[in-house]
Amino acid sequence: MQILFVGDVVGEMGMEMVDQYLPLLKKDLKPQLTIVNGENATKVGRGINEKLFKQIMKDGADVVTLGNHAWNNADIFDFIDDTKKLIRPLNYPGKDVPGNGYCELNINGVKAAVINLQGRIFMEETDDPFAKIDELIMHLKAEKFTVIFVDMHAETTSEKKAMAMYLDGRVSAVVGTHTHVQTNDAHILKKGTAFLTDVGMTGPDDGVIGMQYEPVINKFLTSRPNRFEVETNGDGILSACLIDVDKKDGHAKKIRPIMISQYQPYQS
Rank of each mutant, 00 (worst) to 15 (best):
H69Y: 07
M163E: 09
G45S: 11
S268R: 15
M15D: 03
T193M: 08
P265R: 13
M165Y: 13
I48T: 06
I76V: 15
V97T: 01
P265W: 11
L117N: 00
H180V: 07
Q20I: 09
K54G: 01
H178V: 02
I260S: 09
M13P: 07
S239E: 10
E155A: 07
H187A: 13
M165Q: 15
Y213K: 15
A61Y: 06
K54M: 11
Q2S: 11
G60T: 09
I209N: 02
K144P: 01
T34H: 09
D246M: 12
D127G: 05
D205I: 03
D185M: 07
M1I: 10
T197Q: 08
G200Y: 06
V64D: 07
E124I: 04
I217K: 05
V36E: 01
V216C: 10
R256D: 12
R88G: 01
G234C: 08
S268W: 04
C241K: 04
I80C: 14
A74E: 05
D81I: 06
L238T: 07
T183Y: 08
I115V: 15
L22C: 11
M15F: 10
S268K: 15
K191R: 13
L136T: 05
M138R: 09
C241A: 11
N72G: 00
Q118V: 05
V199G: 00
G109T: 06
M15A: 13
L29D: 02
K161M: 13
L105H: 05
D185Q: 06
I258D: 06
N73A: 06
N184L: 06
Q262L: 11
Y213P: 02
M152H: 02
T42C: 14
G38Y: 03
